[in-house]
C-alpha cells in the first residue's frame, strides 16, 4: 500500500479522491447504499496532544488511502476529553464524524464532567493499547515491586502522576492498593513527571513507557513494572505486575467510535479500513517507536471491552472518592 506520499500529497489526494468518487458513483449506481459511504472527508476528532495525537495522525493518514477520501485528524482538546466527546456526540451519525477515543470516556463520565457515557457512541474498532509503566531512578536500589513496597513502608513515597482523576492516577492507585502501601500522589500537567523524577523531586513516576524510553536506554531511569497482562514491546525486559505477584491488569485502549445511530454498514466499512491499517507493517513500525501497541479488535468485541472497563473504572473511582 502506497502510504508514502510527498509534499504535494494534499493536492494529489484531492485529485485521486475526485477520481475515486466518480468511479465509486459509476460502480455503485443501482447497487447497495453502503458502497456510497465515504463520499466526503471524514473528520477524526482527537482529544489529547502528545504521542497519542501523533498515532491518530498516522492512522488518519493511512485510513485516507484505504477509504479513498481524506481523513483529517482534528484536534479538539481540553477538559480531559470532555470537549471532543461532546462535539462528536452533537454531530449527525453519518460516519463522517468519528472520535479517537479511549478509557477517558469513562474517567470523564465518572468524574461528573459530562452527563453522557460510553453508550452515546457506537464502537468502530480498537486500534491498540498503551500500558502504564512505573519508573524509578536508576541510582535507587529498587529493582522490583517488592523492594519498592518494602521501602515505601519505612518512608512515604512521592509518586509523579498526571492530573488527579486521570487514568494514570487510577492505575497507580490500583497498583499501590495491591502493594498495600500509601503514597503521595503528585499530579503534573504536560507530561513533566519524568523530568521531575530525573530531578529527584519524586521517588517514582507512573507514565507511558515512551516517556521513559530515552532515559531507560541511557541507564538514568529504571522501569520496575508495567500494568498490562503482557510485557510491552518497547521495554521487553520489564516484568508485569502480575508476574511479580500483584494482580493488576489495567491498560489504556485506544480506538475509534462514532455517534450512536451511525448505520452498521458504515461502521463496517470503517472497521475494515482500520483492520487493514493496523495489519500493515508500516503502522506497526511507527507504533513501535511511539510506544504504542497495535491491537485490533472488531466493533462487537471492542464494545464489550469498553463496557467491562467502564464498570471497573466506575468501581475504582468510587473507591477512591473520585466519583461524582
Amino acid at each position: 500500500m502506497a502510504m508514502l506520499t510527498d509534499l504535494n500529497r494534499a493536492g494529489w489526494r484531492r485529485c485521486t479522491t475526485v477520481i475515486a468518487a466518480v468511479l465509486v458513483t459509476i460502480a455503485s449506481s443501482g447497487s447497495a447504499f453502503a458502497q456510497q459511504f465515504p463520499r466526503q472527508a471524514v473528520e477524526m476528532t482527537v482529544l489529547f496532544g502528545g504521542s497519542s495525537a501523533t498515532i491518530a495522525q498516522v492512522l488518519a493518514d493511512a485510513m485516507s488511502t484505504e477509504l479513498g477520501v481524506p481523513v483529517a485528524a482534528v484536534s479538539r482538546t481540553g477538559a480531559g476529553g470532555a470537549v471532543g466527546y461532546a462535539y462528536v456526540k452533537s454531530r449527525r451519525p453519518t460516519g463522517y464524524d468519528i472520535v479517537w477515543n479511549s478509557n477517558s470516556i469513562s474517567t470523564v463520565f465518572h468524574s461528573g464532567n459530562i452527563d453522557f457515557d460510553y453508550r452515546t457512541f457506537e464502537p468502530v474498532a480498537r486500534v491498540g493499547m498503551e500500558v502504564p509503566a512505573l519508573a524509578v531512578r536508576a541510582d535507587s536500589s529498587w529493582r522490583t515491586l517488592d523492594e519498592f513496597a518494602a521501602a515505601a513502608r519505612t518512608k512515604r513515597m512521592r509518586v509523579g502522576i498526571s492530573g488527579r482523576g486521570s487514568f494514570i492516577h487510577l492505575v497507580s492507585a490500583a497498583l499501590f492498593d495491591k502493594l498495600g502501601i500509601d503514597v503521595i500522589y503528585v499530579p503534573y500537567g504536560q507530561g513533566t513527571a519524568p523530568t521531575e523524577l530525573l530531578g529527584g523531586r519524586v521517588d517514582a513516576a507512573l507514565q507511558w513507557p515512551s516517556q521513559f524510553k530515552a532515559q531507560v536506554d541511557a541507564r538514568q531511569l529504571r522501569v520496575i513494572a508495567v500494568t498490562g497482562r503482557d510485557r510491552v514491546p518497547v521495554l521487553p525486559d520489564v516484568p508485569t505486575a502480575i508476574e511479580q505477584g500483584y494482580d493488576v491488569d489495567m491498560v489504556m485502549w485506544r480506538g475509534l467510535a462514532a455517534p450512536m445511530g451511525t448505520p452498521s454498514d458504515v461502521i463496517a466499512r470503517l472497521e475494515t479500513a482500520v483492520r487493514r491499517v493496523v495489519a500493515s507493517p508500516r503502522f506497526r513500525e511507527v507504533s513501535a517507536t511511539l510506544g504504542f501497541e497495535p491491537a485490533f479488535l472488531p466493533a462487537s468485541e471492542f464494545g464489550r471491552v469498553i463496557a467491562t472497563d467502564d464498570a471497573a473504572i466506575g468501581r475504582l473511582m468510587a473507591q477512591l472518592g473520585l466519583k461524582r
Binding site: A82, G163, R164, G165, P187, G189
Partner: peptide, 8 residues
C-alpha cells in the same frame, strides 16, 4: 475551566 491538577 477544568482544574488540571484535581480534575474539578
Amino acid at each position: 475551566g477544568l482544574d488540571e491538577l484535581d480534575g474539578v
